[in-house]
């Protein structure tokens, strides 16, 4: 699998896990990596070699069944996390700030939304 996609998958999993553990410092860390990963993968998608269908590119986009399933699961987990964060983004946000962290859930939602959109594009490319 393409290294950028692999890294992207890894970041997503770590973000979801950190969120589930309510480890906000880790959430921030992985959210930062994830949005950087989105930008890097977007950049990769714009490169001429990537846009063409050379054998190298075809190979880069070959996923085993397990990897493909992994990609779908991660996307699903991100959707779930996004929905939960949306509930935190109202008044509860103030409580979050007062408690222990200044993390703004609304910005994490934007990052996750970007990642989900990118997953959809990668999946579409894989399904072609």
């Amino acid at each position: 699998m393409n290294y950028a996609i692999l890294k992207f998958l890894d970041c997503s999993k770590k973000l979801v896990q950190a969120y589930q553990e309510k480890n906000w410092a880790e959430v921030v860390e992985h959210a930062g990596h994830l949005i950087s990963g989105v930008a890097e993968l977007w950049k990769l998608l714009a490169t001429p070699t990537f846009a063409s269908t050379t054998p190298e590119n075809a190979e880069a986009f070959v996923l085993s069944d397990a990897e493909y399933e992994d990609l779908e699961n991660v996307c699903h987990e991100l959707e779930k996390t996004k929905q939960e964060l949306e509930q935190l983004s109202g008044d509860n946000h103030e409580q979050l700030v007062a408690a222990s962290t200044a993390v703004d859930p609304r910005l994490i939602i934007v990052i996750i939304q970007a990642a989900i959109e990118l997953y959809k594009i990668v999946k579409k490319k894989l399904d072609e």
């Binding site: 714009a46 490169t47 934007v110 959109e117 594009i121």
Partner: peptide, 12 residues
């Protein structure tokens, strides 16, 4: 020679 995917760009 290169492409732009606007959906992702908007999110970024």
């Amino acid at each position: 020679t290169s492409i732009c995917d606007y959906r992702i760009l908007c999110h970024i």
